[in-house]
């Protein structure tokens, strides 16, 4: 699967900005910067990883800048970024 640089989301409070880039390794690496990292950092990373796994996206570096987004928002932003990165429309 060819991966392009892509992003989704905003820096608004309650949102998350997801950037996806091709990785030299095969797995998924996640770099998270979150206003709620203390309490929810691991949970946010897990939601990002699970969403990418469901979409069969690997070999990517994810940079996530979180402003307290809920899980549903995180899934939506990761999905949108993945669709833009892979060119595979998962919504059809």
């Amino acid at each position: 699967m060819e991966i392009k640089n892509a992003s989704a989301g905003t820096f608004e409070s309650g949102d998350i900005f997801i950037q996806i880039a091709p990785s030299t390794t095969s797995g998924v690496t996640i770099d998270l910067d979150s206003t709620v990292a203390f309490q929810f950092g691991e949970q946010i990373k897990r939601v990002i990883a699970d969403t990418l796994q469901e979409l069969n996206v690997t070999g990517v570096e994810v940079k996530a800048t979180d402003k307290g987004a809920l899980d549903c928002t995180i899934r939506a932003r990761v999905t949108a970024a993945a669709v833009r990165a892979t060119g595979v429309d998962v919504w059809k």
Partner: peptide, 10 residues
């Protein structure tokens, strides 16, 4: 139920 369980603060 919306946000999950928060981790302990350090």
């Amino acid at each position: 139920s919306i946000i999950g369980e928060a981790a302990e603060l350090p």
